[in-house]
């Protein structure tokens, strides 16, 4: 990736999925790689369960921490249906990384509304750079289901063109030492997708 363009990554999902931490880690990696970085979250007032999105923008000089609609380069969606809520931020060339898992909203839990079907097919019809993974299962295989966000970062890292060492340094520092090797394994498993 060149330094001149401002790159925009949008992390989306549901409160409690580790989206903020993932976007913090990504931002730190880009800072160490020498970019100007700005990051901003949009979330509602609940502690958990609501929609969460985090905008990360990096380049030689970044002004706005919020993306313009149509300008997002990579959408990293931690929940299948949430992918669709942010489609207007993308363009035909955007890459999309989806954790193929669902978290039911209250209306679905109460049986009042169905969970939308065929989301993956829909996304694949509109975008040609799509990565689908089961991040929680992959994280469980690496030692702890809560590392699903690290798996997602691994998948994202394949697009970012930044030296691996920045990633691994930041991942090591972001988590307790006893989880470090598992965490690197989770990251690698996402990266291989």
């Amino acid at each position: 990736m060149s330094n001149e363009k401002v790159h925009t990554i949008l992390f989306v999902g549901v409160g409690g999925q580790g989206i903020i931490l993932a976007s913090d880690i990504f931002s730190e990696v880009m800072l160490r790689a020498g970019f100007d970085v700005k990051k901003s979250e949009v979330h509602g007032m609940a502690q958990r369960g609501g929609c969460v999105s985090s905008h990360v923008r990096y380049g030689e000089k970044v002004y706005s921490p919020l993306a313009n609609k149509g300008d997002v380069d990579i959408l990293v969606s931690f929940e299948r249906m949430e992918t669709l809520r942010y489609i207007d931020y993308l363009n035909a060339e955007s890459a999309v990384v989806i954790n193929d898992e669902e978290v039911f909203p209250p209306s679905v839990n109460l049986g009042d509304e169905p969970y939308p079907e065929d989301i993956i097919t829909f996304v694949q019809r509109h975008f040609h750079r799509v990565k689908i993974l089961k991040a929680t299962d992959m994280a469980r295989n690496a030692g702890d289901a809560r590392m699903a966000n690290t798996v997602m970062l691994g998948a994202l890292s394949a697009f970012s063109g930044v030296n691996d060492s920045y990633w691994k340094d930041v991942l090591r520092e972001a988590l307790p030492e006893r989880l470090a090797s598992n965490n690197i394994e989770a990251f690698e498993s996402g990266r291989r997708i």
């Binding site: 549901v14 509602g44 007032m45 609940a46 369960g49 609501g50 929609c51 313009n68 609609k69 149509g70 300008d71 249906m81 669709l84 809520r85 489609i87 207007d88 931020y89 993308l90 363009n91 035909a92 955007s94 909203p105 209250p106 209306s107 679905v108 509304e113 969970y115 939308p116 829909f122 509109h126």
Partner: peptide, 17 residues
Amino acid sequence: RAFDVPDLPGLPDRPPN
């Protein structure tokens, strides 16, 4: 410049709880 996807299905809300 918002990306216009005409056949986007309606989505259930996620109100805070």
